[in-house]
Design a protein around this nucleic acid. Structure first.
Length: 455
RNA sequence: GUGGUUGUAGCUCAGCAGGUUAGAGCGCUGGUUUGUGGCACCAGAGGUCGCCGGUUCGAAUCCGGUCUUCCACCCCA
């Protein structure tokens, strides 16, 4: 057997110690926030039955699913005819499981399967990797973590309010100051398409209009025309594009603009109530922007839609979500309304790195390294090690008997701030010499004094 | 899925009008300094030049394929 070069599958990556410390900083902040708001943690398997996954994400989504080959003789059900018919007819016979594509569908599956045990409204959060057979690029991987929080079983707009509050809290804890939370309502989009005389085409409308920031109104007009939107509709849309600033101003304008659409007015009313609740809660509208053209995964959202973006960074949105009135319907449980959102940890990581917001110190690092010269020192070191750890101080003993120089270099490389040197003098006197590597200062004191100092 | 881009030492990269033994910086190992790291100086180890094939007397260098990296579009976290 020849030696092979180690490699990683496309779109995946390792997380080294530094990255893990930083990721945990982000994940802990998010989890703490979810818990603070009363969400409980759920985990589901990495793999789901393919029947659970397919058909939930549209045709494109189905193609991006990672499928798992059946074990054993996976060809046993495949006939000559299937081979001729191509991949489409072979697939269901060779694969019956797939890797989860997001956390929302497995959650819906869980809710339906456990509907008798769950007391509604049910608030859960889930932090797990998901897999997509996408083509990787910046901020986009084939394996990445999602942090979902969802509430099912209530129509209350309190859920929407809390999503805004949680995003605000997480960003604030992470030190992100310059960002905005875009918010819209699917009903407003529906109203929009009704008012411009293209009822039912809000999906197409949004795909085009969503690009406004990127390509400008001119190009959007072209695309709309290409999609066979009437000149009247396009003309009617133009005031939306240059909508005045301020959430109230936009709402007032749309109230008149959407007067002919009951659904549209409903959406406006929901947003107004949301803003009013925000005020009563004692939070201002800073960072919260009503964005009429915000679209997002229209396949299942039915009410509010959210998206959070950090300003002046090269990464896309880092959080998104919305209300879906009937997610569990496909699994046979009707009438369970849900609302949820998700943080993209990987993208948040890139954002914090780009903004230089990670804490300098690694809080997970060892505090002190014990160094020694000979077997006597090693034995003494073991005792000191035990004492330090018992006092809750992260300590390690250098495993090999070698030159002090090498041991110090190890501490230096690992960015361990303190070193204890254990030689004959210290052993005899029963104390320790502690050296702070950054300053080079060294002092000799008893173990009790040291523990007290670091408490 | 479409278009482009990248691959040389552990890392970042140079070398590429085809021509003896493939280089640098950083890192690594050892020494100057056998109870004290960072700095300096000295020495050393480490590469089938992504993989397969072709052109050629001769390929890291040219050509084809393949994999990989990154980017734009699509879509999305």
């Amino acid at each position: 057997m020849s030696v092979q070069k180690p490699s990683l599958p496309k779109g995946t990556r390792d997380f080294g110690p530094l990255q893990m410390a930083r990721r945990n900083f982000i994940l802990d902040t998010i989890k703490d926030t979810f818990k603070l708001f009363g969400f409980q943690q759920l985990e589901t398997p990495a793999m789901e039955n393919l029947s659970t996954l397919t058909g939930k994400y549209g045709d494109e989504g189905d193609q991006l699913l990672f499928k798992i080959l059946n074990s054993g003789d996976f060809l046993k059900n495949v006939s000559k005819g299937d081979l001729d018919a191509g991949a489409q007819s072979i697939l269901p016979k060779v694969s019956e499981k797939g890797l989860r594509y997001d956390l929302t569908v497995p959650f819906a599956r869980y809710v339906v399967m456990n509907r008798n045990e769950i007391s509604f409204p049910f608030k859960r959060f889930q932090v797990q990797p998901v897999w997509r057979a996408d083509r990787p690029q910046r901020g986009r991987y084939r394996e990445f973590y999602q942090c979902d929080a969802d509430v099912v079983g209530t129509d209350s707009l309190l859920c929407e309010l809390e999503i805004i509050l949680m995003i605000k809290r997480v960003f604030s804890k992470l030190g992100i100051k310059d960002y905005h939370i875009k918010i819209n309502n699917r009903k407003i989009l529906t109203g929009l398409s009704e008012v411009i005389g293209e009822a039912g085409r809000e999906g197409e409308l949004c795909v085009a209009i969503d690009k406004l920031d990127k390509i400008g109104w001119e190009k959007v007009q072209e695309e709309l025309a290409q999609r066979n939107f009437s000149p009247y509709a396009i003309e009617k849309l133009s005031p939306i594009v240059n909508l005045m600033t301020g959430n109230e101003g936009r709402l007032d304008f749309l109230k008149k603009y959407l007067a002919a659409s009951e659904t549209g007015l409903n959406g406006i009313a929901e947003l107004e109530e949301l803003f009013s609740m925000l005020q009563t809660y004692g939070e201002d509208q800073e960072h919260v922007d009503f964005d009429v053209v915000l679209a997002r995964g229209l396949s299942y959202y039915t009410g509010a839609i959210f998206e959070a973006k950090v300003n002046h960074v090269s990464i896309g949105s880092v959080s998104g979500g919305g209300r879906y009135d009937n997610l569990t319907g496909v699994f046979g449980l009707e009438g369970v309304s849900g609302v949820g959102f998700s943080f993209g940890v990987d993208r948040l990581y890139d954002v914090l790195e780009e903004l230089g917001l990670f804490p300098e110190e690694n809080p997970e690092n060892t505090k002190v390294l014990l160094t020694y010269f000979d077997t006597k020192g090693f034995g003494y070191g073991l005792k000191v090690l035990n004492e330090l750890r018992s006092a809750g101080i992260a300590a390690e003993l250098y495993p090999d008997q070698t030159k002090i120089k090498k041991q110090l270099t190890y501490a230096d490389k690992k960015q361990i701030p303190f070193v204890i040197i254990l030689g004959d003098n210290e052993i005899e006197a029963g104390n320790v010499s502690v050296k702070e590597l950054s300053s080079g200062q060294q002092e000799t004191l008893s173990l009790e004094e040291l523990v007290k100092k670091w408490k």
